[in-house]
Amino acid sequence: MKLHTLYIYIMLLAGISCSGCIREDEYDNSPHGNLYALWNIINEQYCFLDYKEQTLDFKWNDMYAKYASRLSSSMDSYQLFEVMCDMLSELRDGHVNLYNPHDVGRYWSWYEDYPTNFNEELQRKYLSNDYRIASGIKYKILDDNIGYIYCGDFSTAIGNGNLDEIMHYLRTCNGLIVDVRNNSGGQLTNAEILSRRFTNKRILVGYTAHKTGPGRNNFSTPEPEYLEPSTGIRWQKKVVLLTNRRCYSATNTFVRNMKECPNVTVLGDQTGGGSGLPFCSELPNGWLIRFSACPMYTARMEHIEFGIAPDVNVSLSLEDALRGEDTLIEEARLLLNISE
């Protein structure tokens, strides 16, 4: 074999090696480059752009030019961060966050602009010191034989065995209060595990979709979401679900599911919303951006990004609070006792 054939072989390999590299577009690590990268991530991956443009009356296409006018090459990272957060706040989405080493950009008006309707001191009067805890869920039988469950977080794994114990303990109660006030979310699977205790049959609770490409209208066909009944102990009596504006994300989905269950009445304030499953990405300067990527809808294909209205709207009253009473819990007890 002649040596030149070996050279050809090596040259061919080198040629193949250099062709067809798959790489991403690169942005400048400058104020303009970072702002454009941020704008483009939202433009291509954020799942509520059309909905937000319609309901909030803005055009995302105009946003880059609007906020780029506030940039200068000499600005520091604090000023750039402020401009970026202002642009992101147009979306009014609690799932949109910008993380940098000195701060977290956030939109928390979904609960900060509204009354809390929850007071831990008042709740303590009902729970006292002899309540039980399982999987992070506090539970107790109130004086009028109404069961009370407080789930303040869906981040902690909820075990089916724990739920069986809870349901078994509360089985003699005339009704059940499920309190998810101030629960700002966690794992969707935990929310689903708990809501499965309140239906005896498979029910349609909503739809979910995802983006299939960077285009504005690149969405998958919404897939139905069904709630399967738990194989463990299921609650068969009346339920009142207490909500406030801090019910967000996975808790918002929990409330959506519960509204489809029989015997459930939602009482309190509207939930905070947050119906987009979040994803993360990065900017050229290393800052992390979180945003809503997969939209979730109700069983009637309605958006729940801005929250779910309760069946009975009740606010915490100052007079009740001064008496040491939680208005929402008292209203729920009244409702359950009347039903009984």
């Binding site: 979910t208 995802h210 299939t212 998958s220 994803f279 990527a293 997969c294």
Partner: peptide
């Protein structure tokens, strides 16, 4: 898929 979560694939069984 482009914006599909693993929750949707593995918890919901929605393949795309």
């Amino acid at each position: 898929n482009y914006g599909q979560s693993y929750y949707e694939i593995f918890s919901k069984g929605n393949y795309d």
